[in-house]
C-alpha cells in the first residue's frame, strides 16, 4: 500500500506535520460546529418562546399596548 502511494509523485504519505494539522482540524472543527449549532438551537428556542409568550400575553390582555402603559402613568 505504502509503495503504491509513493508511486504518486505529488504525494508524501505519513507526513506527521500534515497529519497533526488534520487532527487539529478534526477536533477544533467539530467543537466549533457544535458550539455554533448549540447557540443557534438556544437562540431559536428562546426567540420562539418569547414570541409565544408575548402572543399569549396580548391575547389575555386585549387592552395592552405600549401606549396604554404611558397613559396609565
Amino acid at each position: 500500500m505504502m509503495n503504491m502511494l509513493l508511486a504518486f509523485e505529488n504525494l508524501n504519505p505519513m507526513n506527521l506535520e500534515v497529519l497533526k494539522a488534520s487532527l487539529n482540524i478534526l477536533w477544533q472543527g467539530l467543537l466549533a460546529i457544535f458550539i455554533v449549532i448549540g447557540l443557534i438551537i438556544v437562540a431559536v428556542t428562546v426567540t420562539t418562546d418569547i414570541i409565544a409568550w408575548s402572543k399569549r400575553y396580548k391575547d389575555s390582555h386585549p387592552d395592552f399596548s405600549i401606549k396604554n402603559i404611558f397613559k396609565k402613568k
Binding site: L5, F8, L11, N12, P13, M14, N15, V18, L19, A21, S22, L23, I25, L26, G29, L30
Partner: peptide, 17 residues
C-alpha cells in the same frame, strides 16, 4: 463527520493540508 475523517485520511495518504 465525513468531511473531517476524509481530511485525516487524505493527509495520511500524503496530500498537503
Amino acid at each position: 463527520l465525513g468531511i473531517f475523517i476524509t481530511i485525516i485520511l487524505a493527509a495520511i495518504i500524503g496530500f498537503p493540508i
